[in-house]
Design a protein around this nucleic acid. Structure first.
Ligand SMILES: [Zn+2]
Ligand SMILES: [Zn+2]
Ligand SMILES: [Zn+2]
Ligand SMILES: [Zn+2]
Lengths: 132, 132
DNA sequence: TTGCAAATGTTATATTATTACATAGTGTTA
DNA sequence: TAACACTATGTAATAATATAACATTTGCAA
């Protein structure tokens, strides 16, 4: 949502597409959508996705093999991500809850081990689907 | 680790393999390993995996597309899973921490929405790898 | 013993992701 | 500018992961 000057051409094309999408996009759906812009091969998409994930502009929804733009300006490094996923309509939102992220970032297991990174996916029914 | 009477033939073969493995197994590695037992097609493996996940005997490590046996006798339904993953040696352990699971099971987002299920993956270096 | 649900077998195919190798741009510094 | 390192791009081929479709069999309960 903010600076993207330093994105390369392909990275920018692909980020813009994901950022405009109301739903997570899959790699080959991205590929299909950017072919008119001269991106022809899966690898071009995956390379851009890798970079965008690395710099925190997008996140991968692991359980869906899909990508969404970061909705939380503060998680530039994407080391601490949490999402809510509707199992009916597949709507996905990034959760930015300070208490939750503090709790998880400070979590230490029985052995006292702390972790440098986490990804949390919540599943349920979104408001809309619940009321149906 | 406990009852498995009601597993079918293929389910049992595949569960036993996963349960004995010190590391998460991928579907096609499972397939390769059970071909001598007469399981020849990917679909036979995926069907057993789906069922085993459904009944909570195994869990899928989403970020790795791999499967491990449930190490936590209490999570029969696999609606609340947490794992620690070593980014160096790829060792994976299931975390069973009552506080954590209570915290997450009761978590409600800004809109007050609660979730019926979650999956959490922590990443870092395991003890062994850290001391290298 | 009929009937249903779950599981199996088999083939083909869809979807997701990477390897390998060649080329081009970008910025830094000698 | 020339040399260098680094990042990004282009292209082809292929590997790895997962599902569709359809026929058959098995386990078990009414
Ligand atoms: Zn984010
Ligand atoms: Zn929904
Ligand atoms: Zn478990
Ligand atoms: Zn390790």
């Amino acid at each position: 949502m903010e600076k993207q000057q330093n994105l390369s051409k392909n990275q920018k094309i692909i980020f813009d597409l994901i950022d405009k999408s109301p739903e997570p996009l899959k790699a080959y759906s991205i590929l299909f959508n950017v072919q008119k812009k001269g991106i022809n091969a899966p690898l071009q998409v995956y390379r851009a996705l890798d970079k965008l994930v690395e710099i925190g502009k997008i996140h991968k929804i692991e359980s869906r093999n899909a990508f969404i733009a970061c909705q939380n300006s503060s998680c530039q490094i994407s080391k601490a991500t949490a999402f809510s996923i509707c199992e009916s309509c597949e709507k996905v939102s990034e959760i930015s809850n300070t208490k939750l992220s503090k709790y998880l970032s400070n979590f230490a297991d029985e052995a006292g081990m702390k972790y440098s990174k986490y990804n949390l996916e919540f599943f349920g029914l979104c408001k809309k689907c619940k009321s149906k």
